[in-house]
């Protein structure tokens, strides 16, 4: 039996496609939209449309932006010799809000997560290497052992070598001195950091990782052993 209008039901159905939105929340949102002034609803609809139509990815750092290259990559005030590697565009925003970093970025588009089936080929890892050394593609092709020489002996039939990164024709890559890995301090972040470190080993570039340890305002007494160990390992001089 139909208790409400088809349009409302359609809206509820669409809201449930959003993450963390269940049927009840979707119904509450739909009821709220019904009560909103017409112009506000149109503003939301227009924002939704333009986010798909106007937004693109920077072809250098892969951040979500309105123009390509993005304002950070095209700015001459940014230090292109330092690349900060982040998982998602939202991490870039978090770092920008600190006003402490003047380098450029590289957005991986995720992290290596073996348990979720996400591997290096699903991320923009090779694009990062190609930013550091445009000849990476050739190097990778020469250096990569054939699948049958893998230590585990388990060939990956699905891998597509053509998905490696490419530097656009005519582009002159600025020399990169340092790559800062700003990935989350969890197992997936660790895996990604070790992988990138090993991948970049042949290049003349310093690879660093942001510090891990206690949060400001935290309490030593309640910190777990792993976090404390990391904090001790990463201790620094008192300025």
């Amino acid at each position: 039996m139909q208790y409400t209008s088809e349009s409302v039901e359609a809206l509820v159905e669409q809201f449930t496609k959003l993450p963390t939105i269940g049927k009840k929340t979707a119904r509450r949102l739909a009821n709220y939209v019904l009560k909103m002034p017409q112009e506000e609803v149109e503003t939301i609809a227009s924002a939704l449309r333009s986010v798909k139509e106007d937004v693109q990815r920077c072809s250098t750092c892969y951040v979500v932006a309105d123009q390509d290259p993005c304002p950070i990559c095209s700015s001459d005030k940014r230090d292109a010799s330092t690349i900060c590697v982040v998982e998602e565009s939202s991490d870039l925003i978090a770092i920008e809000q600190t006003n402490e970093y003047r380098g450029v970025y590289h957005v991986l588009g995720g992290v290596i997560s073996p348990l979720d089936g996400v591997g290096p080929d699903d991320l923009r890892v090779h694009e990062l290497a190609a930013r550091i050394d445009p000849s990476f593609e050739d190097t990778a092709a020469d250096a990569a052992p054939a699948p049958e020489t893998m230590p585990d002996g388990e060939a990956d039939d699905d891998a597509d070598p053509s998905e490696n990164g490419q530097v656009q024709e005519g582009e002159t890559a600025a020399p990169v001195d340092e790559v800062i890995l700003a990935v989350n301090p969890n197992v997936e972040g660790d895996t990604t950091a070790y992988y990138i470190t090993q991948l970049l080993e042949p290049f003349d570039v310093r690879v660093t990782r942001i510090a891990r340890g206690l949060p400001i305002g935290g309490d030593l007494e309640y910190a777990d052993e792993a976090t404390l160990s990391r904090a001790l390992e990463g201790r620094g001089h008192v300025d």
Binding site: P114, G117, A140, E154, Q198, L199, E201
Partner: peptide, 17 residues
């Protein structure tokens, strides 16, 4: 699930691996 990912990691010439 993890097998193909780990194969990708090892194929990339991860020396320590």
């Amino acid at each position: 699930r993890s097998r193909s990912v780990i194969a990708q990691i090892e194929r990339a010439g991860a020396p320590g691996s």
